[in-house]
């Protein structure tokens, strides 16, 4: 619980979040040579790191009992299942926009 945590920890997390935000903006504006896919991957890794430290420190997850981790992680697993279940259709499907899908469905 929060009573045992020094406010210095919160300030360190705060500065880390601001630094990561600057890093996200910097890499998206400056490192075009890396390629769009790589930039997206780096941006998502930074965002995941930021979300993790907010969850662990600001939301005190690291001081909770272990089953809280299950509650926090289970929906994330479901999200990944939802996203990956669409990949075959996205990768191998013929339709690229909702409009085309609707047009194809009407024929």
């Amino acid at each position: 619980m929060s009573a045992q945590i020094s406010t210095r920890v919160y300030w360190n997390v705060f500065f880390a979040l601001l630094a990561c935000t600057a890093l996200t903006v910097g890499q998206s504006q400056l490192f075009h040579a890396l390629g769009h896919g790589t930039n997206i991957a780096i941006g998502l890794v930074i965002a995941s790191f930021k979300a993790s430290i907010v969850t662990l420190f600001f939301m005190h997850l690291r001081h909770e009992k272990s089953y809280f981790y299950g509650v926090a992680l289970f929906p994330l697993v479901l999200v990944l299942v939802i996203l990956f279940s669409n990949f075959p259709d996205v990768a191998f499907g013929d339709h690229t926009t909702p409009g085309e899908v609707l047009k194809a469905a009407s024929h």
Binding site: V25, S28, G43, L44, I46, A47, K50, A51, V54, T55
Partner: peptide, 13 residues
């Protein structure tokens, strides 16, 4: 946290 993800995927990347 939701905004942490929305910011890069909508505005930047």
């Amino acid at each position: 946290i939701v905004w942490i993800f929305l910011f890069p995927i909508v505005y930047l990347l």
